Computed example of a mutant assay.
Amino acid sequence: MSLDFNVPQYSYEPLDEGNHGIRLMTLLPAPTREAEIVCDLRNVRLTETDVPSFEALSYTWGSPMSPSRLRVAFLTNEKIDVTRNLTEALPCLRDTEKPRALWIDAVCINQKPLAERGQQVQRMAHIYSLAERVIVWLGLDNTDSRLTMATYY
């Protein structure tokens, strides 16, 4: 994902906090890991009795320096800046045939308005607890990670 400054930033639709709103990201399928990452964002209601099907991603954001652009809203071609660590995770998480519903804090929470960010951060434990699965991304495989995994497992 290269940085293209001619592409508009994604405009988030406000959440309905009074109705327990969150956003879910649908990671669209692609035949190869090298294909552009494209996703859609949608607002949904999340309560104990109203739980959409989704997985949550836990990872470290990494440095905000040299961000990549994640293509959102397939038809409008808007983008969201994301960190390198998330840029590396998404091709590994993407299916070749089926869309995948994910909750990823850096994308699903509009980081600009402090009020929304604060409310959503307070709900994170609840969001993770209602996910079908929590995926932990430790980063791309390297010599250190292989040694660590071999040592502990």
Rank of each mutant, 00 (worst) to 15 (best):
N19R: 13
P67W: 12
T49H: 05
L15M: 10
D105K: 06
A131L: 02
R94D: 08
R94P: 10
I127R: 02
V44M: 00
S11Y: 00
L130V: 11
E132G: 11
T76Y: 12
R123P: 01
P99G: 11
N19Q: 14
R84H: 15
G62V: 03
L28K: 09
A56K: 10
E34C: 03
L90R: 07
I127S: 00
Q9T: 06
R45L: 00
L140T: 02
T143N: 05
A73G: 15
Y59L: 15
N6C: 00
A150R: 15
D4M: 01
D16P: 05
L102M: 04
A106R: 08
Y12C: 00
E36V: 02
A56H: 13
P99D: 10
C92S: 07
E34T: 10
S145F: 03
S63Q: 03
L140D: 01
C92P: 07
T47Y: 05
L57P: 09
R94L: 02
L15S: 13
C108A: 07
C92G: 00
R100P: 04
I109T: 09
D141W: 11
R69N: 08
A115T: 12
D4I: 08
A115K: 15
T143A: 09
T148I: 05
S145P: 04
P29N: 10
M149W: 14
I109S: 08
T143I: 05
A106P: 00
S11F: 03
D4W: 06
V38W: 02
G118F: 07
F5W: 04
D4T: 06
P8S: 13
I135F: 01
K98G: 07
Y10W: 08
S129E: 14
N85I: 02
R100S: 10
Y153L: 08
M124K: 12
S66H: 13
V51T: 14
V44E: 06
E17S: 11
F5Y: 06
M149V: 14
L93V: 08
I80L: 15
I22F: 02
